[in-house]
């Protein structure tokens, strides 16, 4: 039983292949962490899954339906997937509450009153109840990223894609965002995270995938990847990470 299946996925930019035949299956409630050097294709893979990029070969299936087919309704697919970006991308001209309610109301047809009620519940759950009326530029980076996660969550996605959601944050603010992701995991959310936080990947992932120059070199449990990596490139990557004290 898989929720998401990626088969032999290729993506080119200007004749250069950034993803080279990636295969990946994600089960419901599974948490997958993508690790790999900068430029290895983590963000590109997530953007392909969310149909923000058109793929150059292979296929992606969500609930056994091919979403990369030209016949698939891209807007309908994106409604089932939530994505959170490294740079938050909150809408600066809207309050926190409006940021969260926009998609449920406009794209999912939820009545405004109920959307607001649910947004406030989520804000309360993640300790941001007093920020509902604030504009994004009045929030700290950690608060902005938590709002971005709530905004994606408010559309009740089947799958969440999180692209280096803590990279733009001060170390002191990373913890509060990781706390939110932990809570999502406990709620049974299926997630794919691209991350440079190896310690966190080790703690939260069911599966760790090592992406290297667009190739999925190795996948396994966190235990296996971090203590006995099989592939030589994985070992090399992890040792550079250890050298820069990120593990």
């Amino acid at each position: 039983m898989t929720l998401l299946r990626i088969e032999n996925l290729w993506k080119d930019y200007h004749g250069h292949s950034v993803l080279r035949g990636v295969d990946l299956a994600v089960a419901p409630h599974e948490v997958v962490c993508l690790i790999g050097a900068s430029g290895s294709g983590k963000s590109t893979l997530l953007r392909c899954v969310n149909l923000l990029e058109t793929v150059d070969d292979g296929a992606i299936f969500l609930d056994e339906e091919e979403i990369t087919s030209p016949r698939a309704d891209a807007d309908a697919v994106r409604k089932r997937i939530g994505m959170v970006f490294q740079s938050y991308n909150l809408f600066p001209h809207m309050t926190v509450l409006d940021n969260i309610c926009l998609a449920p109301v406009k794209a999912h047809g939820v009545p405004r009153g109920r959307a607001e009620e649910e947004a406030r519940e989520l804000l309360t759950r993640f300790g941001l109840a007093d920020k509902a009326g604030a504009y994004p530029d009045r929030l700290s980076g950690g608060q902005q990223q938590r709002v971005a996660i709530i905004r994606a969550l408010a559309t009740r996605p089947r799958l969440m894609l999180l692209d280096e959601v803590t990279s733009a944050l001060d170390p002191a603010l990373v913890a509060e965002v990781l706390g939110v992701i932990r809570e999502l995991r406990e709620g049974g959310m299926t997630m794919i995270l691209a991350t440079h936080e190896m310690g966190f990947a080790r703690e939260i992932a069911d599966t760790v995938c090592f992406l290297d120059e667009g190739v999925l070199r190795e996948r396994g449990t966190p235990e296996q990847i971090f203590t006995e990596p099989r592939h030589e490139r994985t070992r090399a990557f992890l040792s550079t990470v250890i050298a820069s004290r990120r593990l």
Binding site: L52, K79, N89
Partner: peptide, 10 residues
Amino acid sequence: QRAAARSLGL
């Protein structure tokens, strides 16, 4: 901004 909006299903 557009990517975020589209990814929310708009």
